[in-house]
Simulated scan of single mutants.
Amino acid sequence: MATNQPGDQLLYELRAREAWSQRDYEKARVIAGQAVDLALQDDNQVAWWNMAFFQAECFREEGAVEESVKVAELLRAHPLTDQSPALAARVLTLLGIGLQGIGQLPSAVDAARNAVDLAARDNAPRELLINALRALIATLAESDQVGEAWNECLVLAALITTDTSSQISGKAYWVIGNVAFLRQEVADGAKYHRLAAAHLSPNNDLDLWARFNRASAAKRLAAGVVDAETLECIERAETASSIVGGNDRDQLELSLTRAHWLVLTGQLNAAVKRLKPICADSTILASQTAGEANLLLGRALAGRGDDIEAMNYLDAAKANFIQSGAHDRAAHVAELIESLMQPESTTT
């Protein structure tokens, strides 16, 4: 039986991180899994923890969010996590993002809030708190708790200094801008997203640049902002995505953003054509995002007079929002369904 050499663990870790840097997340995850197995054989708990966490991040980047959540849950129960508030904050931040990604919004908020509480302790790295706050703000906003999300945005903005790394600052401004748009504060939303764009360089991380521009466009469209700057965001995201690829979920969300633009600009036939395959494949999306897709398709169909077909998609949207815990959006869809039923009831 072959024995493990002292440098094997480090070699696996270096190879995994090299694959990550080349955006080969599947390869990175497989190598990290080998490192996890080796750490178990050697009873090296620290190495196991680090590589298992890295595995969870790889799963997330691959779009396998449920798998990422499973590993994060294992890490949360590990003795090392119990012993370190900083490690616990990292795990709970990862878990909050993952739970949001699979549409478990109340649990996502709880995990992210606990991460913030742990990261706010004395001597914790500021970056840890910034990342935890970003997760909490995103989960609150997705849960329709926009007022509370904005309060946390004010805390986050105060943490950004000239010493904060450019990418960390960019991601923070990004989430603050998202919430401003949700509050219909369009000028503030645009301001913070321009700050984010100034800190996030396509030369440093083209994939992140694609995701930022897609998200910026999505939040602008949600606020009803249909202008040249919004279209530029969509086109930048599509161009960057065509270069870096991205997982199936990323591609579907980008297509959904373009479809939203088509709906708001009155191109209903083109919107329906794009939205039907998105809704058919929506099981790979978070349930609240699937709800947005079904809602858009219902609106587009109703807009061109296909009320009966529209009702089917609006019913699906309502169910998606209820499942994820986005009750305000579910209530909004219920009102749309009622308004579509109203003309029928008045003629009978």
Rank of each mutant, 00 (worst) to 15 (best):
E235C: 12
E232S: 09
V244I: 12
Q251E: 09
Q251S: 15
S242A: 15
G224V: 09
T230S: 14
L231C: 07
S242G: 15
D227W: 01
V225Y: 05
N213M: 04
A210R: 02
L256T: 04
L231N: 08
S255T: 06
R211A: 01
S216A: 15
N247Q: 10
G245H: 10
A222P: 15
G246E: 03
T239A: 07
A259Y: 00
R211S: 05
R211P: 00
N213D: 11
E238L: 09
A215C: 03
A223T: 04
K219V: 00
T230D: 10
G246T: 08
E229T: 14
D250K: 06
T239C: 06
A217C: 08
G245W: 09
V226A: 08
T239P: 04
A223P: 15
I243N: 00
D248L: 14
L231D: 08
S242P: 11
D227G: 14
N247T: 06
I243S: 05
V244D: 00
S242F: 15
L221C: 02
L231Q: 11
E232M: 08
T230Y: 10
S242I: 12
V244R: 02
A217F: 02
A228S: 11
A237H: 07
L256A: 13
L262K: 14
D250E: 12
E232K: 12
A215E: 12
L262F: 10
A210P: 05
N213F: 04
L252E: 02
A222L: 05
A228E: 08
C233V: 03
N213S: 12
E229A: 13
W261T: 01
S242V: 14
V226D: 03
G245N: 06
F212V: 10
S255R: 14
G246S: 10
L262N: 03
H260F: 03
V225N: 03
W261C: 07
A218R: 04
E238V: 06
A210I: 13
V225G: 02
A237D: 07
V244F: 01
A222R: 02
R249K: 12
A228K: 06
Q251W: 02
R236V: 09
E235V: 11
L262V: 05
L221H: 02
D248N: 12
G245Q: 05
E235H: 08
R220V: 00
A259G: 08
S255M: 11
A240D: 07
T257P: 15
S216M: 09
V244M: 03
R258E: 07
S242H: 14
F212H: 12
A215L: 11
W261N: 11
A218F: 11
L252Y: 02
H260C: 11
V244Y: 01
W261A: 04
T230A: 13
V225Q: 09
A259I: 00
E253A: 00
E235P: 01
R214H: 14
T239Q: 13
H260P: 02
R211E: 11
N213H: 15
R236A: 13
G224A: 12
